[in-house]
């Protein structure tokens, strides 16, 4: 995985509009944003806001898998995503979906072979294949399970396997579409621990997630979507300090809600979003003296 850290990718989306076939409304409407290499971006919004659609567009599933009308431009490293060759695209972007069970290929009998699935498809040489598989399995703490059947794994392990399988393809950008929505708290922690490793690898990460307390610890910026439109694209503290944030049906981190109720702001005028920020702020109050 060493070469990943030296790679860089930049995504630029301009006036992106998309409508699914037979759909009445547009799922994405005039979205413009850019993501720098190595950044971690969160995408939030209520159900049907267009979060998954944006992920599918970035990963090229739209328009290759889902047809429909796409307008505007979406570029990775200056290259147009919809016209890029599939092979090139796969080496640039990896996607992890919600359901850990349905993203297992189902055709492989062991965890080891499951990770190999994508590498086999791309025709990676055998020696390199073994090296990459060993690396990702160790990285995601699955090496001991390598001879198990994927379907014997727990949800959290399975989702880690899905991330490992995608990461074995060494993408420059990794998109995670609600990777913990079907997992229990243990599985969620496992997956977030795995995600935190991605940052050290220099991979650009885009993550759709409803567990904001976890999300804010990890991302540099957040894109808030509503009805297919980009409402705001900014740092987590600026997003969650918006007075009308509740109107978009997304909720907020419990720490932000607490500080809003108590009227506690950070010196920069924004509400804290993470546990550590809140503790720092509260300990500065010295209430009981």
């Amino acid at each position: 995985m060493d070469n990943v850290s030296t790679l860089s990718a930049k995504i630029s989306i301009e006036h992106l509009t998309y409508r699914y076939p037979f759909a009445k409304n547009r799922s994405l409407e005039d979205i413009t944003l850019s993501i720098d290499a190595g950044q971690s971006i969160g995408i939030i919004g209520r159900n049907g806001a267009g979060k998954s659609t944006l992920c599918y567009t970035l990963s090229g599933l739209i328009p290759r898998f889902f047809h429909g009308k796409i307008e505007g431009s979406i570029k990775i490293d200056g290259e147009d995503v919809p016209t890029m060759s599939v092979e090139k695209l796969i080496r640039k972007v990896g996607l992890v979906l919600q359901n850990p069970f349905s993203q297992i290929s189902g055709a492989k009998m062991t965890v080891y072979e499951e990770v190999a699935f994508g590498l086999e498809n791309l025709g990676i040489e055998k020696d390199e294949m073994h090296e990459r598989i060993d690396t990702v399995l160790k990285q995601f703490d699955l090496y001991k399970k390598k001879d198990k059947n994927p379907f014997e794994l727990s949800g959290g392990q399975l989702q880690r396997l899905a991330i490992a399988s995608v990461l074995a393809l060494q993408p420059e950008i990794l998109i995670l579409d609600e990777p913990t929505s079907q997992l229990d708290p243990c599985g969620t922690t496992e997956v977030f621990e795995a995600i935190s490793q991605l940052k050290t690898l220099g991979i650009t990460v885009i993550i759709v997630e409803h567990k904001f307390e976890k999300l804010v610890e990890y991302v540099d910026k957040i894109a808030l979507l509503n009805d297919g439109k980009l409402v705001k694209y900014d740092t987590p503290e600026k997003i969650f300090s918006m007075p009308q944030i509740e109107d978009y049906g997304v909720g907020q981190p419990i720490y932000t809600a607490l500080c809003k109720r108590m009227g506690l702001k950070k010196p920069n005028g924004y509400y804290p979003v993470s546990f550590n920020e809140t503790v720092t702020l509260l300990s500065g109050l010295k209430m009981y003296e």
Partner: peptide, 27 residues
Amino acid sequence: LVEARERAMAIEIRGFGVEGKRTFVRE
């Protein structure tokens, strides 16, 4: 059907549709 669609997406993302030489981890 939903699962099949998701699985189709997931394997497509991992290059199942890529034409060209394949290799095999277990020869």
